[in-house]
């Protein structure tokens, strides 16, 4: 697997940075290289939060995400802000309720009920970030699912394992349905 740049966008408190860290951990657990970085530059200003992680089978030299291979946007603001850095032909996932103005461009857009699934099917909107991980893993075939699941479960708070397991699997199902 060559380098994949992942950007998870949302608003503060949606756990995008945590999700990026969990994805990185799971990737390393699965034997890959990963770097998760924070944002500092001019683009770090404003209300849109983001988690960023690069995963690869090879050494990762440049540590940051510039253009995304995978972009997830849980809010309209983050979608509008980060879509300009989505690579041609890349994967773009947006929350179907929060992102009303769907992005247009030379990439594949999946509009999915990520927050609704977390809130209604799982019963906790805070696990939307884990649903998101299930979605992108399935869409982009990133990691062996068992490795991802083990990675996620070892990094979530104790006592929430079942909840997160369900969230991750729900994400996978959302992606499967979308890919049909």
């Amino acid at each position: 697997m060559a380098r994949i740049d992942i950007r998870l966008g949302g608003s503060g408190g949606q756990g995008t940075i945590t999700a990026a860290a969990i994805m990185g951990y799971a990737a390393v657990y699965a034997g890959k290289k990963a770097v998760q970085t924070k944002s500092y530059g001019p683009e770090a200003r404003g209300g849109a939060a983001r988690g960023e992680v690069v995963i690869s089978d090879e050494d990762i030299n440049y540590v940051k995400v510039i253009k995304s291979d995978i972009l997830v946007a849980l809010t309209q603001e983050s979608c509008d802000k980060f879509i300009v850095d989505a690579k041609e032909g890349s994967i773009v996932v947006v929350d179907d309720f929060m992102v009303k103005n769907k992005p247009q461009g030379n990439f594949k857009v999946y509009s999915l009920p990520i927050i609704k699934t977390a809130a209604e099917d799982i019963g906790k909107s805070m696990v939307a970030n884990i649903v998101m991980l299930g979605v992108i893993n399935q869409l982009a075939n990133l990691l062996d699912f068992d490795k991802l699941e083990k990675g996620v479960l070892s990094k979530v708070p104790k006592g929430t394992e079942e909840l997160n397991k369900k969230a991750l699997r729900a994400g996978v199902e959302l992606a499967k349905a979308a890919m049909k």
Partner: peptide, 10 residues
């Protein structure tokens, strides 16, 4: 530096 110090990696 702050990037290497604050980033996560294997």
């Amino acid at each position: 530096d702050a990037i290497i110090g604050q980033m996560m990696e294997q």
